[in-house]
Nucleic acid binder design. Structure first.
Length: 316
DNA sequence: ATCGATGACCTCCTTACATCA
DNA sequence: ACTGATGTAAGGAGGTCATCG
C-alpha cells in the first residue's frame, strides 16, 4: 500500500500487529525517534525473518510522512537502566561440568534436527536441562529449579543476567536476531549459560523488538491519521467553497480566487490558484481551446472529484 | 511418493521474580 | 518497611518445518 498525501480517497486501517499484544503490555509509548541523515529510511533494527516483519514498518517507513520517523527500535529496546543498576555479579555461573554437558548436548543438536533420542519431547528436554544440576552449589539461589521442585510449591527462581552477559547477547542480537545452533553454542560457551537461557533471551529480545516496533507503528499511524484528517478537513472546506461557486456563479464573478485550489473546467483538474496568474498559454495545441484561458492551470496532481462536482464551472 | 512420528524452533501469552521510586 | 509499577527471565500452548522410518 503506497500511502501518500496525493491519495485522497483514503481509508486508514489501524489494525496492526498490536492486536495480539498481551493485555499486560501496557507500556507507555517510549519512542526513540531520530531524523535520518539520508533518505534511506531504513530501520536500524535487525532484519527480521520475512514472515515476522511488521508490515507497517516495511510499508510506511518509506512513505513521505514516514521519513520523519526513522526508528531506533533496536537501540530503544536495549536495557534502559543505568549501568549502575546492574550488579555486575554473574549469578548464572554454572559449574564447569554443567557447562560442558550443555555444550556437548547442544553440539549434538547443532546440526538441524539431529537429536538425542534418549529424551523425548521438548518439555522433557527442558526438564532435563533444569534438573541436571543437582550438585550445583548455587542452586538454592539461582534458576536451577526443576519442574518437580516448582510443583512442590517452591517458587521458581529467576535471576538476572550479568551486565556483561546482557551486553554480549545484545551485541549478538544486533548481528542476527535469530540463532542457528552454531551461534547458540558459541554464545553458550562464551557466556557460560545454558542453551535454553540463550534461546529464551533471544526469544524475549525478539518479542521486545516487536513490541517496540508495534508502538512505533501505532505512533506513526496516529500521526498519519492526524495528517490525513487535517488534509481531509482542508479539502472539505474547498469542496464547500467550490459548491458555493457552483450555486452562485454570479457571486463568484466578484470574488477573489477563493482558496488555494482552482478546478480546470475542461479537464477537471485542480491546481493551485496562486500559480494560475502565471499566464502561459496551453502549449498542447495551437488551436484556441474554448477554455484556453483556463488552461493556465498548472496541473500538479489529479484530484478525483465527486460526481456532483464534475460539471464544468462557468467562469465567464 | 506418501504419511505419521518426532524433534527443533518459533510466536504468543502468561507468570514469577527483581528492582526501583 | 511497604507497595505499586516496570523490566525481564522463564514456562506453557500451539504452530511450522525438516527429517526419518
Amino acid at each position: 500500500m503506497m500511502m501518500g498525501k496525493d491519495d485522497l480517497g483514503l481509508s486508514l486501517s489501524l489494525s496492526s500487529s498490536s492486536s495480539s499484544s498481551s493485555p499486560n503490555n501496557h507500556l507507555p509509548l517510549q519512542l526513540n525517534l531520530t531524523i535520518p541523515s539520508s533518505s534511506s529510511a531504513s530501520s536500524p533494527s535487525p532484519p527480521l525473518p520475512s514472515h515476522q516483519k511488521t508490515q507497517w514498518s516495511d510499508l510506511l517507513v518509506h512513505s513521505e510522512i514516514g521519513r520523519v520517523l526513522d526508528l531506533d527500535v533496536c537501540g530503544a529496546a536495549a536495557d534502559p537502566r543505568p549501568p549502575s543498576l546492574h550488579r555486575g555479579i554473574d549469578v548464572n555461573q554454572e559449574p564447569p561440568g554443567a557447562g560442558e554437558r550443555d555444550s556437548e548436548e547442544d553440539a549434538g543438536a547443532s546440526s538441524p534436527n539431529s537429536t538425542l533420542s534418549s529424551v523425548s519431547g521438548k518439555r522433557a528436554e527442558r526438564s532435563y536441562h533444569l534438573g541436571v544440576d543437582e550438585h550445583d552449589p548455587d542452586r538454592d539461589c539461582s534458576r536451577w529449579v526443576s519442574d518437580e521442585e516448582d510443583g512442590e510449591g517452591s517458587p521458581r527462581k529467576k535471576l538476572r543476567l550479568s551486565k556483561d552477559q546482557a551486553a554480549i547477547l545484545e551485541e549478538s542480537f544486533k548481528e542476527h536476531n535469530t540463532l542457528n545452533p552454531k551461534q547458540k553454542l558459541a554464545l553458550v560457551k562464551r557466556l557460560n549459560l545454558r542453551p535454553r537461557q540463550v534461546e529464551v533471551w533471544f526469544q524475549n529480545r525478539r518479542a521486545r523488538t516487536k513490541l517496540k516496533q508495534t508502538e512505533v507503528d501505532c505512533e506513526f499511524l496516529k500521526r498519519c491519521c492526524e495528517t490525513l484528517t487535517e488534509e481531509n478537513r482542508r479539502l472539505q472546506k474547498e469542496v464547500q467553497e467550490l459548491r458555493a461557486l457552483k450555486v452562485s456563479p454570479q457571486l463568484y464573478m466578484h470574488m477573489t480566487p477563493p482558496t488555494t485550489l482552482t478546478m480546470c473546467p475542461s479537464c477537471q483538474r485542480v491546481s493551485n490558484s496562486a500559480t494560475t496568474t502565471a499566464s502561459t498559454p496551453s502549449p498542447a495545441t495551437d488551436t484556441p481551446h474554448p477554455m484556453s484561458q483556463h488552461h493556465r492551470f498548472i496541473h500538479h496532481r489529479p484530484i478525483p472529484l465527486r460526481p456532483c462536482l464534475n460539471m464544468p464551472l462557468q467562469r465567464s
